[in-house]
Computed example of a mutant assay.
Amino acid sequence: MYTGLQHLHSYLSYLVLLGLVISFIVGLAGMFGSKPFSDKDRKLSLLGLIPTHLQWVIGVILYFVSPLGADSISGAAMKDSVTRLYILEHPLTMIIAVILITIGYARAKRSIGENRGFKNIAIFYGLGLLLILIRIPWNAWPGN
């Protein structure tokens, strides 16, 4: 079960990044294009939201079944940068990124018919994407 979840979490990250990049670009284009945020644009922003939430749920499950997760929390683990990344830095940063992306979607959803919906998507999804890119454990990235 652990190995399957680990592979799913690793490969789903490609879909998360793709969805967030598409949503972010659409948000930027709409923000600078001065057009109103439509229901179609709201649905397009779900390309970033849904995979991110699915990835987060899988990550939470993985955190509690992985030997690198909750079981390895200790004072000594905080001195090792790789262990600290897996038990503290990666999960905490991803939670903040998911919260930002969710806030951006919720704010944009209430802005149908106004241009600020694009601004919300561009800012919040952009910040979430940046946090995700900063704290991905690149040494464990699929294909490395």
Results as ranks from 00 to 15, higher is better:
G128W: 00
V60F: 13
R84A: 13
A76M: 10
A29Q: 12
L100K: 05
L130D: 02
Y105I: 00
I73C: 09
F24C: 07
Q55L: 06
V82T: 12
F118C: 11
D41F: 03
L129V: 00
P91Y: 00
A77L: 01
D71R: 13
S72A: 15
S72Q: 15
G4P: 03
L130E: 05
P137N: 04
L46M: 04
N115H: 12
D71S: 14
G128P: 07
S34V: 03
P67D: 15
G113H: 04
N120P: 00
L88N: 10
P91V: 00
S34I: 00
P137Q: 01
T83E: 13
I99N: 09
E114G: 03
I22W: 01
L5H: 00
G117R: 04
S111M: 01
H53E: 10
L49C: 13
L15D: 07
I50R: 02
R110V: 03
A122R: 07
R135Y: 05
S111K: 05
G128T: 00
F118N: 03
S66N: 05
L8Y: 10
R42Q: 15
I96F: 09
M78H: 10
T52W: 09
G113S: 11
S111L: 08
A77M: 05
L127V: 00
L47C: 08
G75R: 09
G113A: 12
I103A: 04
Y63S: 07
Q6H: 13
V26C: 05
S66E: 02
S13R: 11
A29E: 13
S38K: 11
S74F: 04
L49I: 07
G126C: 08
G113C: 10
G104N: 03
I73H: 12
S34H: 12
T102H: 07
L8Q: 12
R42N: 15
P91D: 09
T3A: 13
I136A: 00
K79W: 11
I121A: 08
V65H: 02
M31K: 06
S34T: 08
L17A: 05
G143H: 13
A122W: 15
Q6A: 14
M78K: 11
E89F: 07
L88C: 13
S13E: 11
L68D: 11
I121K: 13
G19V: 02
G48V: 01
F24H: 15
G117K: 04
W141R: 03
S66I: 12
L12F: 02
K119I: 11
I73Q: 10
L15F: 05
I61Q: 12
T83S: 10
Q55A: 07
V21T: 09
V98P: 02
L129A: 06
I22A: 05
I121M: 06
L5P: 14
P142K: 07
V21R: 13
S72N: 15
V98W: 10
L88K: 14
L130V: 01
W138Q: 02
G69K: 08
V57Q: 09
G59Y: 03
L47E: 10
V21H: 12
F32T: 12
Y105K: 07
P67R: 09
L127P: 01
V16E: 01
R42G: 12
G27N: 13
R107Q: 06
D80K: 02
W141P: 00
I132A: 06
F37Y: 10
I87F: 11
W138M: 00
